[in-house]
Design a protein around this nucleic acid. Sequence first.
DNA 1: TCCGGTGATGACAGTTGCTGTCATCGCGTG
DNA 2: CACGCGATGACAGCAACTGTCATCACCGGA
Lengths: 192, 192
Amino acid sequence: MARWEPDARGRLRRAALDLYDERGFEETTVQDIADRAGVTERTFFRHFADKREVLFDGSGQLEEAIVSAVRASTADDALTMALDGVAGSAGFFDGRMEWATRRARIIDAHPALRERELLKLSTLSAAIAETLRGRDVSDAEASLVADVAVALFRGAFQRWIGGGGADFAACLRSTLDDFDVLARSSGVRSAE
Amino acid sequence: MARWEPDARGRLRRAALDLYDERGFEETTVQDIADRAGVTERTFFRHFADKREVLFDGSGQLEEAIVSAVRASTADDALTMALDGVAGSAGFFDGRMEWATRRARIIDAHPALRERELLKLSTLSAAIAETLRGRDVSDAEASLVADVAVALFRGAFQRWIGGGGADFAACLRSTLDDFDVLARSSGVRSAE
DNA sequence: TCCGGTGATGACAGTTGCTGTCATCGCGTG
DNA sequence: CACGCGATGACAGCAACTGTCATCACCGGA
């Protein structure tokens, strides 16, 4: 056991979420977060690249889970592979409903945080596309399909946050159903 | 005539682009830009919200042009209206090829700038969606169609930048053709 | 003609995000 | 017991951004 308390990173994550929630993102200084976590400001920046990144600490794992699921998919068309990937993220949110809700509310309220989220989603889309290319999908199709998959992921996430406690997998299924209906009514039609 | 030189905003815009190009974005300080433009740092921040925004000065006009074109479209389905909107942006880039190329190179090289670009595109998509809703398109379809239109806009822009001098409208047509081909091969098929 | 309002700017101090650097301290290893 | 390693503290410093007040040309009305 070290002389300093372990899990400084986790304490910083929790302190940041709480403070952003209580006072607002701009009204919270990194010094405030560090104080509440019992470390110095410098230690905050050793764990997180900047003041926003602390809210996106799990994004690497999420991306890894999705990419693995794409790689493991037994489907033989690109869209289904990508959707299998998104489905592979369901476990990531188990028991994190309250955390995800508070986090989403904070992010939506601040353009600076929305920027960062868009960048993460863009990175995720690129990672999915790259994985699809590794499975013999053409460049253009890989990008397009990855974008669609991420859009559906966002839709499912929104539904999960806003809905009445259904689990993420169910929300994803509903979102896919709506997508099918919409695609038909929009002048494109799903293949058999 | 004022005692100060007019068009400080334009000089700042040009100075910033030149300096970001010559030295790189992070290596350029706002003081550098202000010096070259012959104003103070404070004046820079009166014209632009932050160091990144100076590269996105035209985005409001672009959005306005696209939204107007959506409003003016005589099409009767949402996707065609949105694509008419994107087509309405063609004139915006006339004679700005070199500017757009340098700007795109700078933005692609810096995550902080890519973030801002993603936010602008997200805002654009929201504006298109809102306009479609005003033309009796359902909520969900408006968002989806707007996202697709923005994706195609990005594709056309990429082609215009990378291609050999074709005009933007031609690039947009090629991108739409590819999209049709891709949609057919991806398991969806365009309606007649 | 003078006079007050307006709009763009300069000057300057202050806060905060973020970085570089060096010292410290406990822990494991040989 | 010495040594290196990893996580942290301490501190100086730069650059982004903001608030505030003064200045000065211009413009419209009395």
